[in-house]
Amino acid sequence: MTEKKKNREKLTQELTFKALKATTKGLLIYGIYAVASMFLTPISEIVPNFQQTIEIFVIVYILLMIIGELTAKTIYQFFFNAAKALFVILYLIFSLGGGIVDMTFQNINLTVNLQLFLVVAMLLSLLGLAKSVLQAISFLNQREENAHTLASPHTSC
């Protein structure tokens, strides 16, 4: 009975710690976004839907990050991390329209070529994706090793 209680307490502590960590990370990213959005206000006035586009990105990114943190030390954490990296790639492609951003302001047509940014960002996201896959492999490997060690305990003389 005492053992069960101890385990429950440990699990609660672990969950609370995960939740706190996730909240802190989420708040930190939102704080960075809040500060950055002040500087981005002039761009929002020129580019329609710029604010909404960034907001949706930040919300989904924080959501995936919180879920990833809550599922820490499980294989699901790496699925969510990979999903986060894939989301960044797809979101950049769709929101930047392949790297060429066109906007019309009064009678002036403005074109910004962000293809280089897109390529570098996609490569970094792919690196993030590869990292998640490697972490998942490492995690499974570690778990297998632990299970093997428990199954055949080393006997000393």
Binding site: N107, I108, N109, L110, T111, N113, L114, L116
Partner: peptide, 11 residues
């Protein structure tokens, strides 16, 4: 020297 930007107009 990296980000190409272009503005065009007709009048």
């Amino acid at each position: 020297e990296i980000i190409p930007v272009q503005a065009s107009t007709n009048f």
